[in-house]
Design a protein around this nucleic acid. Structure first.
Lengths: 200, 200, 200, 200
DNA sequence: AATGAATGAGCTTTCATTCAT
DNA sequence: GATGAATGAAAGCTCATTCAT
């Protein structure tokens, strides 16, 4: 029944969002299943109808939140209107950075776990032919998929990692001051990849 | 007395190294203080003479291990014999990467916590005048210390973050294949920083 | 369900009575929660479903036992058949004294904690209009409630306090020998209150 | 050696007074020997040179503090200048009450443990022939020592017990309001004892 | 006499998990 | 499906006490 299905969906959602609040405010270890269930308004036993344990829920939460982050960038940024690949990439990067800047709790939760695998999956959900998306962005020719992956991976790691302490603690500098350096570095990496002989 | 002092130092060391073994093999959460103490050969209560709790010990361990990692690179790599800054930086980077490649347990433990703050402190312990060390490596002129910090920070984040999944799971590619791309990216970043007008 | 509710009530009761036995035989400090739970036939964790900690249970126990003590005096003594106020008061006093004499464990537990507040609450539970009870006993006119309270308080403190060492250690004399002096003192106090000008 | 003796006396004193502070602020149970020793400025092992355990120290402290309380009343009150026994007794009682009113921490510590035995000992320390002191106060003839004891005991219990909640929580009334009633009650008790046929 | 590092028994407390309702 | 009372293993932590120095 639709009614029942909705109810289930609602409980699942309530559990996940409550857990997100608790994980980010107290940490995974100090959050108990009892606490999650109570705040979510369901009985303790109900938790086990949806998740194996706390860690199962946590994992699903990381994936859900990362996917939302990437989807937002793909759908809301104006990367398509940028003329060159670097412009497109930076449009996406900036959208992600600004989401995290405006949602520090999310940043703390995702921590440095912006993973390449999740990014790939998010694109896949959005556009099943994900290598087409890469090519649209980076303007690469087919055939060097692996190289494309490495390029994206490198940039994703740099962005995901460096923004963490910059946004959260302003160390070594704040985001405003860091952004031009990050942009320049990303462009430099992109250029260095483009300079490679085709078909490498 | 020296006897007592030595004994204390030994106990502290035994606790830390035992904890390192357990943390890396079972994870922080699944390791109990009782377990650490027993394997370290001290009584449970003794643990609390040295650490506030498990997390206090963990934090001190991350710092100790990172410092050792950086010190090894500074002392054992041949970065001084490289002619240009990029060569020096890459010599240091490679030393760290190879340490982590050969010690995956250490890599897993430090995770993505190679922090800029610890790096600074490690240099400071080694050579009190740490900005002199940076200048020796990067050949910068005095006066743009902040820029130097940002440069080192960016590279440290890229290296520390990208090597993790490459070394541990070969995803998206293995270290051997990734290394040239990482080198090229690091060089590109360095060049982009050098191209800045002096005194920025 | 009734079944579940009954079961809970039974567990609560079992915990309280077991704790009473242990507290009185070994003292509060030397009684552990593990011990209480085991003897009560419930799991250790169950204790925490009913009480915050040992001291919470102790407090509730003092109140419960005092209330029972007072209720017995109110219901079982023949104070109503006494002609004058002093006779009524002494009938109540004696009932309490004899309960304590016959139940030294109870005396030791309640110690000198026979409190005026609990007495008031016990009367209230028994007869919601508690100042009516006082007037029935002491024959006072309405309007000087505060004075009534002080009178009862004074007598309660004297009785509760003086009987302790007399009953438990016969110091300075045994109960039999002390009783006439206590009676005389209580009468003297009552008389001194009655001699006050009305409406004070 | 005097020097050594002084040092010991000083440590003992420091331990007792520190313990008094801690016992009254946190309670006996929540105060540890380590805490007492540290605050007293001696090593943990030193504690055991002076006391068997925490409870031994507590007991000695109750006696010391009660004795000081009684001695103050005997030495500082003007009971000797009162003409009649009731006046003398009330002078002593008031001195004790005012000490406790001005030192609520002391009141809380002594709680309802103002014991007849300690009172006897305090008098004994002050004037070896303690029954002479009683007679001086109460004007009794020799021979009915037991009766004297009972009289003093009764009054001591009433005063010690009733002042507790009156001073500490103003329940059922504050000390100022209660004092006349307590005085009247004490006088009434004294009178009732005096009315007994001599040589009882 | 004095110290304080070390001990380890034993306590309180938490919490994932089960299962009768 | 949903509940939440009950469980009991296992964790963290305290603390009185000892004893080599």
């Amino acid at each position: 029944m639709g009614r029942v299905e909705d109810n289930k969906q609602q409980k699942l959602n309530s559990l996940m969002e409550t857990a997100f609040q608790l994980f980010t405010s107290q940490g995974l270890t100090k959050t108990s299943i009892a606490e999650i269930a109570e705040l979510a308004g369901v009985a303790k036993g109900t938790f086990y109808l949806y998740f194996k344990d706390k860690y199962d829920l946590h994992e699903k939460l990381v994936i859900r939140k990362s996917e939302q982050l990437f989807l937002h960038a793909l759908e809301e940024s104006d990367y398509r209107s940028q003329p060159d690949p670097a412009g497109k990439v930076l449009a996406l990067v900036d959208d992600i950075l600004f989401q995290l800047r405006d949602n520090k709790v999310l940043l703390q939760f995702i921590n440095k776990n912006l993973s390449w695998g999740v990014f790939r999956r998010a694109i896949n959900k959005w556009q099943p032919d994900y290598s087409a998306v890469f090519e649209e962005i980076l303007g690469s020719k087919p055939g060097d998929d692996k190289l494309l992956e490495i390029e994206v991976y490198t940039i994703l790691e740099l962005v995901g990692s460096s923004c963490y302490s910059v946004i959260l603690s302003g160390d070594p500098v704040g985001l405003d001051e860091y952004l031009p350096h990050l942009h320049r570095s990303v462009r430099a990496i992109l250029d260095s990849f483009q300079a490679l002989p085709a078909g490498d």
